[in-house]
Simulated assay, not measured.
Amino acid sequence: MASYGFLGLGIMGKAMALNLLKAGFDVTVWNRSPEACAELIEQGAKQGKSPKDVAAQCDITFAMVSDPEAAKAIALGENGVTKGIGEGRGYVDMSTVDDDTSKAIEAAIQTAGGRFLEAPVSGTKQPAIDGTLIILAAGDESLYQDALPCFEVMGKMAPYLGPIGQGANMKLVVNMVMGSMLTAFSEGMSLAQKSGLDANQLLEVLANGAMANPMFKVKGQMLLDDNYATSFPLKHMQKDMRLAIALGDKLDQPLPTAAAANELFKQARKEGCADQDIAAVYKVVK
């Protein structure tokens, strides 16, 4: 029976690892703050001592951390994955990073004798809990095939996108569009209310037209309730917007809408909304 590691048990990683456990997979977990492992240990997971330790004993190790710096630290650090992986074992980084970070990790994993796949996800806390994430995989195709049974538990869709960097790029494009839509939506909600319109009626009109989508429905209610309980931390969206704009710079692609949206997310971070949900960008719009 294959064994699986999972590194990083935040809002997303914890839910994803729990789904693997519930599906009967043999899972070893590690988190920088060990107390985050407690619930998974109760559910039958083993606890690893370090990323190195987990990668050394598991056939495939998954990771879900916050940003490129954390991704590189967990993979390339003194007790990182590269120090334990080898003999064709696999490492799947599901964090949202830029393509250069993915390529650097891939090179180090391959040098250490392992296989690497990037697999960032589209989806937030509830899809992670429900196992309905969209997993954007790229890299070693044999590892993709080996990891597919796990992807089918964690997500509803897991396309293979080709060489390393394409998964990262797809995720940045998706989140760039989402962030830009959310700022425009926030402006519309604010304008509607200031002009005397009923915001609930605006949501109803949007829900029945060409722009109907789950994000407007869920985030619209959050704006009306002034409740920004975190599903996707705003600081992570701003990081993704920044990385997408940097990709645009590299490819000489103008991104004026995304750049303007990014400034609103930066302002929201400055005003203390970093750890609140991405919907909190509404606070600076209104």
Rank of each mutant, 00 (worst) to 15 (best):
M1N: 12
A2L: 10
A2N: 13
F6C: 06
L7Y: 00
G10C: 04
M12L: 08
G13S: 09
M16R: 05
M16N: 05
M16Q: 12
A17F: 03
A17Q: 08
L20D: 07
K22Q: 15
A23P: 13
A23W: 03
T28R: 07
R32Y: 07
C37M: 14
A38H: 10
E39W: 04
A45N: 09
K46P: 05
G48W: 00
G48C: 10
A56S: 14
C58W: 02
D59L: 02
F62N: 13
P68N: 03
E69I: 11
A71D: 10
A73C: 04
L76P: 09
N79R: 11
N79W: 02
K83D: 07
K83E: 15
R89K: 15
T96D: 01
T96V: 05
D98Y: 03
D99M: 08
S102G: 15
S102A: 15
S102D: 09
I105H: 06
A108I: 10
A108D: 12
I109H: 11
Q110F: 03
A112S: 15
A112G: 13
G113T: 09
G114H: 09
F116G: 13
A119Q: 00
A119L: 00
A119M: 00
T124R: 13
K125C: 08
I129W: 05
I129E: 14
D130A: 14
D130S: 13
D130P: 12
D130W: 06
I135F: 01
L136P: 02
A137N: 01
A137I: 01
A138G: 10
G139Q: 04
D140Q: 07
L143I: 09
Y144K: 10
Q145W: 01
L148F: 10
C150D: 04
E152F: 02
V153P: 13
V153F: 04
M154S: 08
G155Q: 09
K156T: 12
K156H: 06
I164D: 03
G165E: 06
G165I: 13
Q166T: 15
Q166K: 15
A168I: 11
M170N: 10
L172I: 10
V173A: 15
M178I: 14
G179C: 09
A184Q: 13
G188D: 08
M189A: 09
K194W: 04
Q201A: 13
A207H: 10
A207F: 01
F216K: 11
K217R: 14
K217E: 15
V218I: 15
K219T: 06
Q221K: 14
Q221D: 13
M222S: 12
L224T: 06
N227V: 02
T230Q: 05
T230N: 06
S231V: 02
L234R: 02
L234D: 01
K235P: 05
H236E: 04
K239Y: 05
D240G: 07
L243P: 07
A246G: 03
D249Q: 14
D249K: 14
D249P: 03
K250L: 07
L251N: 12
P254G: 03
P254K: 09
L255R: 07
P256F: 00
P256M: 03
T257K: 04
T257Q: 09
A259T: 15
A260E: 01
N262C: 12
N262V: 01
E263G: 01
F265P: 13
Q267H: 07
R269D: 13
R269P: 00
E271G: 05
G272V: 12
V281T: 06
K283S: 04
V284Q: 00
